[in-house]
């Protein structure tokens, strides 16, 4: 089974009320070094078999049409999850 990771973030020029609430809460726990926070979304799309270039292309299209709204969000990453795991362990 293959898995594609899609990450979506609010556009830089769009105020992120949730990120603002998070950065407001951090100092209460002693995390005073963080001056900003932005909150996005991560999707994991599963497919039968391998993540082929066709699967990645379809994931990219799904990311642009359904998973994000281009008015307020950017798709920042569409990647094969197994490649991602390799990156992390490297």
């Amino acid at each position: 089974m293959g898995r594609v990771v899609v990450e979506v973030m609010p556009k830089p020029e769009i105020l992120d009320p949730q990120g603002k609430a998070v950065v407001g809460a951090l100092p209460r726990l002693g995390f005073t070094q963080f001056t900003g926070a932005r909150q996005g979304k991560r999707f994991e799309l599963e497919v039968e078999g391998d993540v082929t270039p066709e699967v990645l292309a379809a994931a990219r299209e799904a990311a642009e049409t359904l998973l994000s709204n281009p008015v307020i969000e950017d798709v920042v990453r569409v990647a094969d999850a197994s490649a991602e795991a390799a990156e992390v362990s490297a």
Binding site: L15, P17, Q18, N69, V71, I72
Partner: peptide, 15 residues
């Protein structure tokens, strides 16, 4: 979302 009108709605500024 259907692009019949421009812009979008996000969470209220005060949450």
């Amino acid at each position: 979302e259907a692009h019949l009108l421009p812009g979008s709605m996000i969470k209220n500024e005060h949450l």
